[in-house]
Write a protein that binds this DNA or RNA. Structure first.
Length: 247
DNA sequence: CGCTTTTGACCGGCGC
DNA sequence: GCGCCGGTCAAAAGCG
């Protein structure tokens, strides 16, 4: 067999006559049989080609459905984090062949001071500086596996001891949207006078560029923010005590 | 000159 | 135990 491998590369197969050039002929029956085998071989090739194509299309469809499903879950989780305080449950499935083996539920650790915000930005704006009124110092940047856009890491530098961090990354789905993840709670007064303010983990406004969210979403968003601000201030003992004592 | 940004190195958690 | 990956550090570079 050594040296015959190249015969199988292009126009031959294990059933191809060309692969066995020295095979003796035993008459018309053998010739007819060989023609039948060649025909069958051709059909099998076509079937294989069609099957491979269909498999590829099916694979693409499965990936697309999984992508949409993950996107829906992500948005639901964001909605839950913004409007609810109950833990968020996420269903995750493994990718193994046995679909019944390890479908599992796991609870996401609920972090009360982690908030995720989507910010509409100008496409031409290359930086990841979401202006929100606080001072941030960039301390790192990474390219993550699930997103070609780099993720920037910021620490709040408004106060030396403030533990708040934020991560900023363009959305993999829409590059005009920046995903900002605030982590922690500010231990200092907010910078009053700033047009865009974030208090604790609660964003007050998220516009970072001339392009603004739509009026409708901005209105409901502002209403939510006002409610959150009132709630935040009510929970702050120093604020309530100062309010009680007066100026 | 001091502050901020950049960027490669390093570390720890997690899955296999 | 090993490799991958996200997060952080810290030295160098940039900038006002």
């Amino acid at each position: 067999m050594a040296g015959s491998d190249s015969n199988f590369e292009e126009n031959s197969s294990p059933f191809d006559l060309n692969a066995y050039p020295h095979q003796p002929s035993n008459g018309s029956d053998l010739a007819a049989e060989l023609i039948r085998v060649k025909t069958e071989n051709k059909k099998l090739k076509e079937m294989l080609s069609i099957t491979v194509d269909r498999c590829g299309n099916l694979e693409n469809n499965v990936f697309e459905e999984l992508r949409k499903k993950n996107l829906r879950r992500e948005r639901e989780a964001e909605s839950n984090q913004l409007f609810h305080t109950s833990p968020v449950w996420e269903e995750s499935e493994c990718s193994c062949a046995d679909h019944h083996c390890c479908k599992k539920l796991r609870q996401i650790t609920y972090k009360p001071h982690v908030t995720r915000v989507h910010v509409k930005t100008n496409d031409s704006d290359p930086n990841l500086m979401a202006k929100d009124g606080f001072q941030w110092r960039k301390y790192g940047q990474k390219v993550t596996r699930d997103n070609p856009s780099p993720r920037a890491y910021f620490k709040c530098s408004f106060a030396p001891t403030c533990p708040v961090k934020k991560k900023v990354q363009r959305s993999a789905e829409d590059e005009s949207i920046m995903v900002v993840i605030y982590d922690g709670k500010h231990n200092h007064p907010p910078p009053f006078g700033a047009s865009n303010i974030v208090l604790g983990s609660i964003p007050y406004s998220a516009a970072s560029s001339p392009s603004q969210p739509t009026t409708q979403s901005l209105g409901s968003f502002q209403q939510l923010l006002v409610e959150r601000l009132a709630s935040f201030l009510a929970e702050d003992p120093s604020f309530t005590s100062q309010l009680a004592t007066g100026p």
